[in-house]
């Protein structure tokens, strides 16, 4: 078995067709792991893009974003425990989903 590459606790998926490029998630993200794209999407908006690293899976950007599904936040499942690590997200219910 090959060694797993370095992974973050969180992962961000942004639907570039739904994103309207308002930038609220970029402002909200505590570790500043979201950038604005250089190119335009199908609709003519620059969109948010995950910087590729640094996401802690806190979920704060999700609630700052006005679009229902532009952002999906994922969190690491630990191999040993098989559970999602608990975190204080400041958002009630963040651990449900």
């Amino acid at each position: 078995m090959t060694e797993t590459p370095q992974k973050d606790r969180g992962l961000l998926r942004i639907d570039v067709d739904e994103c309207k490029g308002c930038g609220l998630c970029i402002e909200a993200c505590p570790p500043k792991a979201i950038d604005m794209s250089e190119h335009l999407n199908h609709y003519g908006y620059r969109t948010a893009v995950y910087a590729g690293a640094g996401c802690t899976g806190c979920g704060i950007c999700f609630m700052a974003c006005p679009e229902p599904g532009a952002i999906t936040v994922l969190r690491a499942v630990m191999a040993t425990a098989g559970v999602v690590p608990a975190m204080n997200t400041g958002i009630e219910g963040a651990a449900h989903a």
Binding site: P68, V73, A76, V77, V84
Partner: peptide
């Protein structure tokens, strides 16, 4: 936290079911 322990990702924040 040891990074090797990360096995997979699960959605913690996503589109609400109450939206169409």
């Amino acid at each position: 936290m040891s990074s090797e322990l990360v096995q997979d990702y699960t959605v913690v924040q996503g589109r609400a079911k109450s939206f169409y």
